[in-house]
Design a protein around this nucleic acid. Structure first.
Length: 859
RNA sequence: GCCCUUGUGGCGGAAUUGGUAGACGCGACGGAUUCAAAAUCCGUUUCCUUCACGGGAGUGGCGGUUCGAGUCCGCCCAAGGGCACCA
């Protein structure tokens, strides 16, 4: 063995080399015409081109890359594409702040970020890259929208939006801060605009029911979607007004608790209910109340947790089951117009919101459900919402609430005074955005003909380049010529729709476009039929509801319009956690990690001075807190493999991970440790297959290799990257400790190293290639097959069984694998440590779990 | 307010799903190597008790089921997430 200690591993000398080698070999080019292998589609949520990649991207794409490389090694035909979710507000904000064009800003960012991603060594088929702001993408999106219009999937109607009167723009909820526009500071108005909607609510039942089939989705995401869809069953019925006002003679009420009708106390309508609006015209006090409600938050959390406020209209309604029972009608801030009918009857005893309201306005509280096994029960300050027995309710007493609900619905239906109704919380998807940097809605508005689709041969409707962001409002609407056109139907003067699509539309079908870049249609049918559904989709939990639900709906819409044949886009979903970092703060504000110094005594100081720094909470990396580590800096210093390895180690992938300097240094040391395994072993030939050696030491190493292959395979199968990392540490430690004493030992070591490189390759692809080359392996390890574990060697003839006395471990015995229970019992009773604890006591029971454990129960 | 998730050493976390709690990594401590340092290598490291052998306790808290509970059940506490135009 020659003494050929190598230089430390220098990633910059290797990584670019292997990246070009993969590219030259076409290792990651997906080929849908290859039917010899099962397909596997791995997709990570494509990034918004915000400027530079961040550690969250590194983590997300490292995980996806491990899956892609692992599946390829296992013999799958893998599709692993990448593109850009390139439309959206940040580009317009940049245009306003930096006086640059959104397209220029976006495409420059894409160039930067593509370069950064390539440096990570991801196994991506870059030949399929596109950005959603490419006309070649959004043109197809427009065509598909027209298909949706023809298929009856689209509506145009009025809807209320948050309107910033100064910026002349619609605001997202998150842009409304304390009722004011985030940029202008002007009080936000509620404005009615005519907008386009996709009829996702038609699919509510279907989208809910199909969740059950998504068995490779996190339970949490399925639950969030189910709650979002919010299916409920209830009764829709009329409460007649005791005296009609204007043209209202009744309230249409929806309730999920018809069983509690005899506990009714009052009725309440939403501040946005037509009756409330009409009444407010004649009653200034009510108008003021409505204005007050509009200023408060509209989110469910705001409403539920906030103070319940009401306005007594002075009107009353007949109780539907008792003409002489009159209930007062309030306008109440906790009743939502967008849900049900915007009018409720309230049973305070069995709904906390109603109870809060009733106590505040001194309205009656009548208990109609009592818990089982309680005789005397009356609600005072906590509503009772549990199961139980009906009381104080003629015809219902003694029934369960569930049975009472059914009985009431039957009765109302039989008497023709109401119907059972299934209601959903899910509302139609408003897709109009009054913004420039999005896909233009391909519609022409004509005074004579209404909304007319742009003729197909005029697609795509391109965004104009020459726009100005100096005036507030939508640049498309201000453009001197863009919107003026002729009506395709009547030929008269008409204007284009100046709204653009919600960018969630762009991300609702990009996975289908990746399957094949068809120039003449949105999808390449053969390609989408082959590749879809996505086998493993990976992204942030923040997309649990909207993006994933919209994509599920959109896939169904594409199915209906014959653009693809699946209904569910993502067969497997994984949501990874965030990358967090400590925060640092001193007198001058937040400091970034490279602006601080840690003294040997642990004190933290600002780098350019001695001012003490307060170490704050570990939080998601964000620009505002400056707790960011730039992937480029890390790659330059440690290389992509080290960065990837650290992002995969330590924390379970679904949980948040904390970035630490110690952690990245640990990963770096591991890289070097693996590289040192190759020191002084350049004489031995490449060994990829080996029978179990006879020599004890080599045999043990061989066994450890098999254990590692088996464990890493199962860990990667289950996306347990952190566990796979731990297994590889063990194998490397074993290899480091192994000193071959003869030729057979050296061969076993060469064999172990080759298997290690294959196991390491999905996570540290560059180092694995360098090691594979050092071993003299054929071709690229990226193209090598995944190893198969030979587990037969691990089954030894003797097993070690722990022995418990009364459930506490007191010793161990080594027994033949197929020993019968009498022998095991005999050995266990005589084990020295065990004996002490059973001496002089009566053995009451012996539990022997074969191959697992022995438990002796004494008295 | 409603719905959900998570609580294991100094830290990140393992634990074949009811069977030896603390794998693996980080940190810390001790040692080897070195003129010295870095790097590397070898140990120790849940807590309490004991000179030691050993013993006791222990997976947020309190109960329960079981021969056996981190794992299952009930109640409680704490932290985090979601609850309709950010992507």
């Amino acid at each position: 063995m020659s003494d050929t200690s190598r230089a430390p591993y220098d990633p910059s000398a290797h990584e670019a080399h292997w990246q070009s080698a993969w590219e030259a070999a076409g290792s990651f080019v997906a080929d849908e015409s290859d039917t010899s292998r099962p397909k596997y589609y791995v997709l990570e949520m494509f990034p918004y081109p915000s400027g530079r990649i961040h550690m969250g991207h590194v983590r997300n794409y490292a995980m996806g890359d491990v899956v892609a490389r692992f599946k390829k090694a296992q013999g799958h035909n893998v599709l692993h594409p990448m593109g850009w979710d390139a439309f959206g507000m940040p580009a317009e904000n940049a245009a306003m702040e930096k006086n640059t064009h959104p397209a220029k800003w976006t495409y420059e960012n894409i160039d930067t970020m593509r370069g950064q991603l390539k440096k990570l060594g991801l196994s991506i088929d870059w030949g399929r890259e596109f950005a959603t702001c490419d006309p070649s993408y959004y043109g197809h999106e427009q065509a598909m929208f027209l298909d949706f219009v023809e298929a009856g999937l689209v509506d145009r109607r009025e809807s209320i939006v948050n309107w910033d009167p100064v910026d002349q723009t619609v605001l997202a909820n998150e842009q409304v801060i304390d009722g004011k526009g985030w940029r202008s500071g002007a009080p936000v108005e509620q404005k009615n605009l005519t907008q386009w909607f996709l009829r996702i609510s038609d699919y509510a039942e279907e989208l809910l029911g199909a969740l059950d089939g998504l068995d490779r989705w996190p339970e949490k995401v399925r639950l969030m979607q189910a709650n979002w869809i919010g299916r409920s069953e209830g009764l829709a019925c009329r409460f007649d007004l005791t005296r009609p006002v204007y043209d209202f003679d009744a309230l249409e009420v929806y309730t999920t608790r018809p069983d509690t009708l005899y506990g009714a106390s009052f009725c309440a309508i939403s501040p946005d209910h037509p009756l409330a609006i009409r009444l407010a015209e004649d009653h200034p006090a009510l108008a003021a109340f409505r204005a007050d409600c509009a200023k408060r938050g509209t989110s469910e959390a705001d409403i539920e947790a906030g103070e319940k406020l009401g306005f007594d209209t002075g009107l009353s309604v007949h109780h539907p089951l008792d003409k002489d029972w009159h209930l007062p009608v309030y306008v109440a801030n906790f009743v939502l117009m967008g849900y049900g009918t915007g009018a409720i009857f309230a049973c305070p005893a069995h709904d906390q919101r109603d109870l809060d309201f009733a106590l505040k306005y001194a309205l009656p509280v009548k208990t109609v459900v009592r818990p089982k096994d309680t005789a005397d029960f009356n609600v005072t300050d906590t509503a009772y919402t549990g199961d139980g027995v009906m009381v104080n309710s003629p015809t219902l007493d003694g029934l369960t609430p569930k049975a009472a609900r059914a009985k009431m619905i039957d009765r109302f239906e039989a008497e023709g005074r109401g119907q059972k109704r299934v209601n959903f919380r899910l509302r139609d998807w408003g897709i109009s955005r009054q913004r420039y940097w999005g896909c233009p809605i391909p519609i022409i508005l004509c005074d004579a003909c209404g909304a007319v689709p742009v003729p197909r041969d005029q697609l795509p409707v391109m965004l104009p380049d020459d726009v100005s962001f100096e005036r507030p409002g939508n640049p498309l609407a201000h453009h001197p010529t863009w919107k003026h056109t002729k009506c395709p139907t009547c030929g008269g003067d008409a204007t284009r729709e100046t709204d653009t699509f919600d960018t969630f539309i762009d991300s609702s079908w990009y996975f289908a476009r990746f399957a094949g870049l068809n120039e003449s249609a949105p999808t390449d049918r053969a390609a989408v039929d082959y590749w879809l559904p996505v086998d493993q989709y990976i992204g942030g939990i923040e997309h649990a509801i909207l993006h994933l639900l919209y994509a599920r709906f959109y896939t169904r819409a594409m199915h209906k319009t014959d653009h693809l044949s699946v209904e569910e886009p993502f067969a497997g979903l994984f949501t990874q956690g965030m990358v967090c970092h400590e925060t640092y703060r001193h007198a001058g504000g937040w400091l970034s990690p490279d602006e601080i110094i840690r003294n040997t005594d642990g004190a933290v100081l600002a780098a350019n001075g001695t001012s003490p720094v307060e170490v704050g909470a570990v939080e998601k990396m964000s620009k505002s807190k400056k707790n960011i580590v730039d992937p480029d800096d890390i790659i330059a210093r440690y290389g992509a493999d080290t960065a990837r390895w650290f992002m995969l180690s330590d924390s379970p992938p679904e949980r948040d991970v904390q970035w630490t300097q110690d952690g990245i240094e640990g990963a770096w040391r591991f890289v070097q440790k693996v590289w040192r395994l190759f020191d002084g072993r350049d004489d031995e030939a490449f060994v990829d297959r080996l029978d179990a050696p006879d020599d004890d030491g080599a045999r043990a190493l061989y066994g450890q290799v098999q254990t590692a292959i088996d464990a890493v395979t199962r860990d990667l199968e289950a996306l347990g990257f952190n566990r796979a990392v731990a297994r590889l540490y063990e194998l490397v430690n074993a290899l480091g400790a192994f000193k071959p004493v003869d030729r057979a030992g050296a061969q076993c070591r060469a064999y172990a190293l080759a298997q290690l490189m294959k196991l390491l390759s999905p996570m540290m692809p560059h180092l694995a290639e360098a090691g594979w080359r050092a071993l003299g392996g054929d071709g690229l390890v990226a193209d090598a097959a995944w190893p198969q574990a030979d587990l037969s060697i691990l089954s030894s003839d003797e097993v070690i069984l722990p022995v418990q006395v009364n459930g506490k471990k007191r010793g161990e015995i080594s027994v033949p694998k197929d020993a019968d229970e009498a022998i095991i019992k005999e050995l266990a009773l005589n084990e020295a440590g065990v004996k002490k604890f059973i001496d002089g006591q009566e053995l009451k029971k012996t539990i022997i779990v074969p191959g697992r454990i022995v438990n002796l129960v004494v008295k």
